[in-house]
Design a protein around this nucleic acid. Sequence first.
DNA 1: CTGTCATATTAGATTGTGCTAATATGACTT
DNA 2: AAGTCATATTAGCACAATCTAATATGACAG
Lengths: 114, 114
Amino acid sequence: MYITDIDTKMKFLHGFSNKSRVLILESIKEEEKTVSQIIDELGISQSSISQHLACLRGCGLIVGRQEGKYMYYRVRNKLVRDLLTNFDTVLEDIHENVHGCQNHIDEKEADHVG
Amino acid sequence: MYITDIDTKMKFLHGFSNKSRVLILESIKEEEKTVSQIIDELGISQSSISQHLACLRGCGLIVGRQEGKYMYYRVRNKLVRDLLTNFDTVLEDIHENVHGCQNHIDEKEADHVG
DNA sequence: CTGTCATATTAGATTGTGCTAATATGACTT
DNA sequence: AAGTCATATTAGCACAATCTAATATGACAG
């Protein structure tokens, strides 16, 4: 089996390391959408969405097609779609064991522990 | 299908967002190892490895078991293992389209483009 | 060819992350 | 109980990532 080098892998995985990006991926997982639709749906600023879309393109996770003045984005292919589904499958199984990575636990959350 | 909330999902995905963590996961994907073994294998500092292991535990991705003064870590279960394999499967398919997220392209890489 | 709408890009401020160095804990040995 | 080895924790710095605000581009309508 061909093993892609770790740096390429990290660039790819970077796509999943931010909440806005993951929400975008989920939003366009099953159907392509215009940038405006994504903005409206997620309530994230135009600039931020645009930057994240550029990022996701660079990660190889999504593709865009222009139609007039609209830009339609969708998840690249079935493999990526299946990977997104796989996240949910694993999470369903292990979610009770997910407590967050040390440095991430901020006041808000620390409060309602116990 | 039960959908885990996005914040839990992000805590989980955080495990894959760092090179050292991904290397650790790959290292213990098929067999459990002691912390020392991982340190030797990856050549990353003891402190750093220990912090990443704590992080991966918090992400629910790995489990540890103590045996005397040694701590053995392994990937939690087959589902997580399969997810790691899935990364490689997708990458094999899309790696030509992975160019990195804008903000990430630093001098070193920018040089040997073209 | 001017205005408008959709999207992209840039700069700068703010926040988050990961490293190193130092120190702490806890198990086992003598 | 003192020493040693394996691992964990903490603090602080350096750097990376993300957001906002402002501006730019490019397509189409009039």
